[in-house]
Design a protein around this nucleic acid. Structure first.
Lengths: 339, 339
DNA sequence: CTGTTAGCGCGTTCAC
DNA sequence: GTGAACGCGCTAACAG
């Protein structure tokens, strides 16, 4: 950096300012410095900047897995939202394991990330306290935790389960199965579904636990097993669209008419859901939008220093800084021909 | 860190060593230090470490987009491969744009990333020179570039195109279409397909350029248009499985028998390909394996300092350090019932 | 195996 | 609008 400063005939601090806060420098010197920068191919050492300023311009995110397209979409939205601002995305996969998440969070904190994005509302106690102590903005996504750490951008999985239950009941189905993973968000949806069915005479629910990450083959296998055992329900609500589509394909093979003999409903509204024959009923969730909303929430907060969610709560009455700390982006029942 | 050192009755450097190279410290002091670390909840400031050691333990990767499951899989493989080693993944999306890639690479370099992973072999000249000057390990994936920057982990898209062409010809198809994006890897596959068809009397090829990122609906729309114009080819090779599946669904709707009336072949062998009716012929590519192989290649190289690919080339005869700088993971024609 | 010294390359703070 | 000195928190290099 000294080389650049010398070449431009200024001091290092001016170079620094041109590269970080151009508006603080006169246009003339700015031009000189920029010219020198280009000539030398100089690139700021962000690590040194991080050490000096305690701001890394890195935001970290933890998702259960990238294999699931829904999380990949959220990361894409987040990444897209962050890109124009110069913030960078550090990524970690927890494999649905809170301990792994804890390890990741630790490292991220050590890297002085400016903010952290988590999936879901279940975290180890140590993660919660460390994050609170760290004072950095935290966003939990993909659900609406009862006791959020800080901010939330999600939707109610419980409500989604209820909505599906009500839809299925309204269509006249009584013998209803759920098939999906045992992760927290699925559990919430099951709880919603169950609460609605339990309140209805004659309605029964059965849950098939499928290993997380099971995709098309798992859905097909379930239908095959049920069909062969002559133990078919009237409707199945799947934990994700891949499972549901796999089931649908298996039904096609076995001549099980959809929705006449079996109703199928998926979750997430992946792109293929609408393309299937028949088009798949599902729950549309704002995968990418959650990522984008998270990005803008974070950017806002990072731009307005000293305003954590708790601070905002404390100052209460002052409306300038107060902002809703939890964003419910909702979901939408996407009823098509399969149910 | 001083607090920890004091509590453990050692100096700061010992604490540093316990946390970075435990084996360099006696078990006794290690235990003392670890106890102090736990008691205080101390976390290393990695940014300071980066500044002092010029090693960030961060590896950056640029993919065109995360919306495409194939790249998401590669990133997952990379992330999984990196996780046990303590390296972290910094992620960027180029949107298939070399200029955007250049910006990302710049920032990543500024962050002192220890290695860089790129998608494909097309980069701006500035990226190539900067990367070469930076001396950090670079891996290009998803293809076999003629002039690699450093290391390569991929497969031949050109060969894949040839293989599909040969298969289709062997099956007796002559009127063959390609439908897909205009990105470099698709272009290579088209070139392969074309070279095989051009060498065969009576074989014709036609290319439908579909916008990158087009999924199921785009495939369906293409078939709809062709069918209505009564301009159907005998076989279509798609740029990705989503396109092919969309086409397949549209064929189901229109009563176009597959493969009797139209052969369909996809690309990537996504999980759903085998589940469709009929199962989709496609080209199976090592999406996740490329990520994992990239991770191990990189970890190897980072563990063995002062051994860049060019160094390895220079020392030539010495077999200890010599290693293949390009890994062709191959592809596999996965012929199922749709072709 | 452990400690001492020095400095990584910036941004902050305060002057000018 | 610009500059000088200092220090961020850690690790490299050497010494003991």
């Amino acid at each position: 950096m000294e080389a650049v400063a010398a070449l431009a005939g200024v001091s290092t601090i001016t170079v620094s300012r041109v590269l970080s806060r151009p508006e603080k420098v006169s246009a003339a010197t700015r031009a000189k410095v920029l010219a020198a920068v280009n000539k030398t191919g100089f690139v700021l050492n962000l690590a040194a900047g991080t050490l000096a300023s305690k701001k890394s311009r890195i935001i970290a995110a933890v998702v259960p897995t990238l294999s699931n397209a829904i999380f990949a979409e959220t990361i894409r939205g987040l990444s897209d939202g962050l890109a124009p601002s110069g913030y960078q995305l550090l990524l970690g996969q927890s494999n649905y394991d809170p301990e792994t998440e804890e390890t990741l969070v630790s490292t991220f904190l050590g890297r002085q990330v400016d903010a952290l994005v988590l999936t879901g509302g279940r975290h180890t106690e140590r993660v919660r306290t460390r994050l609170r102590l760290s004072k950095i903005p935290v966003v939990e996504t993909w659900d609406l935790p009862a006791k959020p750490i800080d901010m939330v951008v999600g939707f109610s999985n419980l409500e989604a389960g209820c909505a599906v239950g009500r839809h299925l009941l309204a269509r006249g189905y009584r013998k209803i199965d759920f098939a999906g993973g045992p992760d927290d968000r699925s559990l919430a949806r099951i709880a919603g579904l169950r609460s609605v069915l339990d309140a209805t005479k004659g309605a029964t629910i059965r849950v098939h636990e499928l290993a997380a990450g099971g995709g098309f083959p798992a859905g097909a296998a379930l239908v095959a097993r049920l069909h062969e055992a002559q133990d078919m329900p009237r409707a199945i609500f799947f934990g994700n669209d891949a499972l549901a589509a796999g089931a649908l394909f298996e039904c096609q093979r076995r001549g099980v008419k959809i929705p006449q003999m079996l109703a199928l409903i998926g979750f997430a509204d992946l792109e293929f859901a609408a393309a299937l024959n028949p088009p798949l009923s599902t729950v549309s969730v704002p995968s990418a939008a959650m990522g984008q909303a998270t990005a803008s929430l974070l950017l806002n907060r990072l731009a307005a220093p000293n305003t954590s969610a708790t601070d905002a709560a404390k100052i209460g009455g002052t409306k300038s800084q107060k902002r809703s700390t939890t964003l419910d982006l909702g979901f939408k029942l996407q009823i098509r021909a399969s149910s």
